[in-house]
């Protein structure tokens, strides 16, 4: 970061001479340093997956959440600063609830995404605030079908067939690009996601957990965590695949 020490990075309301807002960039960096999270849009729904490093042997398994329900038809996987992520998730839940009570129908994915993006963007506008150091993979299922969005600290939001954030994002994206996402079912994608996360997991030897959710016909078009047995199968398949490729090497 060329901004460091130049004084142009003290507030989100100051541009650097070459047109950057360093505070926003730093927030993005917090996301980039996160452990890897990915989202896949399949033909029947969305799968969200995230690798979670086990920071201590004393940590209770599956105790810190990275994937949250926003409403029955929407969920978010957060990356970056997790407390910031929680704020974003709570805001999303609030938006969903308000929309439902005002219009009597579930908030459409596109609207939820736009509102979240606007919310995140707000924190890039005032000297007294810091942009959220978090990005959210948003999975929704509305009357137009399933959709995957990524909302970033700058307030940028895009709709994806598949994407990843965090340390190994580039490697994951390379893997995703090789896949035929339009033909994949969520059940298959769960296995693929497990394989990818095991493959790109950098700190070999360091233990990690996989947290995964889906919203598809199998889940009744409701966002929920992937059932434990389905996830266990996927992880077993992923480990087997890893060992196989090790043997080849």
């Amino acid at each position: 970061m060329s901004g460091i020490g130049t004084g142009y990075d003290l507030s989100a309301t100051t541009y650097s001479p070459d047109g950057k807002v360093f505070q926003t960039d730093y927030a993005q960096k917090a996301v980039d340093n996160s452990s890897t999270a990915l989202g896949i849009k399949c033909k029947d729904g969305i799968v969200l997956a995230v690798e979670k490093l086990v920071v201590s042997k004393l940590l209770v398994e599956r105790s810190s959440r990275r994937i949250h329900n926003v409403d029955r038809h929407a969920g978010i996987c957060v990356a970056g600063l997790l407390p910031d992520g929680r704020m974003v998730v709570n805001r999303a839940a609030e938006e969903a609830s308000n929309y439902k009570s005002f219009y009597g129908e579930p908030i459409p994915g596109r609207v939820l995404c736009e509102r979240l993006a606007s919310y995140m963007h707000l924190f890039n506008l005032y000297w007294s605030m810091r942009p959220y150091g978090t990005a959210g993979l948003l999975a929704t299922y509305d009357e137009d079908g399933p959709a995957l969005y990524l909302v970033e600290p700058s307030g940028v939001a895009h709709k994806y067939h598949g994407t990843a954030v965090g340390k190994a994002r580039q490697a994951v994206k390379n893997e995703l690009e090789k896949m035929k996402l339009g033909q994949l079912t969520c059940r298959e994608a769960v296995v693929e996601a497990a394989k990818i996360l095991h493959k790109v997991h950098e700190e070999d030897g360091k233990p990690f957990e996989i947290e995964m959710s889906w919203i598809c016909d199998d889940s009744g078009r409701v966002h929920q965590r992937v059932p434990a047995e389905v996830l266990a199968e996927a992880e077993a398949a992923a480990k087997a695949a890893m060992e196989e490729s090790d043997m080849e090497d």
Binding site: D71, A93, K100, S101, Q224
Partner: peptide, 15 residues
């Protein structure tokens, strides 16, 4: 009914 639906959705969300 709408109040109770909201309550149930909140329950679901908390997971």
């Amino acid at each position: 009914t709408r109040l109770l639906e909201e309550l149930a959705t909140d329950d679901y969300r908390t997971d």
